[in-house]
Design a protein around this nucleic acid. Sequence first.
DNA 1: TATTGTTATACTCTATAACTATA
DNA 2: TATAGTTATAGAGTATAACAATA
Lengths: 158, 158
Amino acid sequence: MTGVAAPNAEEAVSLGELEESLGFLLRIAQVHAFQRFYDAFGDGGLRPGEFSVMWVIRLNPGVRQGLLAETLEIKPAQMTKMVRRLEEQGLVRRVIPDYDRRSVQLFLTGQGEAFTEAHGEAFFHHDDHTHLDLSERESHQLAHLLRRYIGLKKGPVE
Amino acid sequence: MTGVAAPNAEEAVSLGELEESLGFLLRIAQVHAFQRFYDAFGDGGLRPGEFSVMWVIRLNPGVRQGLLAETLEIKPAQMTKMVRRLEEQGLVRRVIPDYDRRSVQLFLTGQGEAFTEAHGEAFFHHDDHTHLDLSERESHQLAHLLRRYIGLKKGPVE
DNA sequence: TATTGTTATACTCTATAACTATA
DNA sequence: TATAGTTATAGAGTATAACAATA
């Protein structure tokens, strides 16, 4: 007997213990976050991650590329492509420093500064609590717990 | 002037407002969750998502494939491939019901039942708080807030 | 005509390792 | 010998639309 009769109301699917699984919930949450990002920024051809990279370069001018990759958990090979792309768009400048000519220091160009200046508020607004069924307090708490989850010690916000 | 002097202590990269960005934190958190999953289950060739799919089929025998895809936010084309793969492995059975021969009902095979039975505890344990710097209460709260973030109403756990 | 699932295609993302330049 | 970054390659994941079967 294998359920050949038509189900009455098929719209209820139970998830059981998955509703407590952080891995499962994080995957779904990230699907939503990506969708949210593309709804807000997809037009300009900006990719997820690119804004974050520029933002961190802006806060840490001259940061070494490998350290940036490590911090943002982006693989070196991927970071190379991302930086090259941003360089081609005139947003980022690569500098080979004299004290270690193997390494690459990263800076925003004037255009890159202008871009992050122009879109920073929109970026940080697009995924904040005002677009969610979360209160501001819950949103901060979610961010706090996610930082704990990934082992990120909160540094000074400038 | 482009920072040609060697930095003294280069290991501190500030993230600024990114530390409050849910999209950013969710991406990093998912990288960690994936790594965690592969550390625990990578050997058996199990992919992220496959266990979840089997788990939900087990709780909802005969669930329609499209409804499953919608629930788990997996695209139909991807779900087809995933189900075919699970079918080839003898874990899932596809049934075309008489009441709607366009649709596909999904069931676990005996082997699929055995698999979820054998690995369920390990799966739900591998990403719980005991492996994290989170208390049990914080872990539950994180799950709760993630459910709120994705708009998931918690159903009855069986 | 609309819906369910499948297929085909292309594209992005990712992982890995080999490679170069430099230390 | 070790490190920083790059390149090349292949593999996995994803999006899209066209398609066949059924409703």
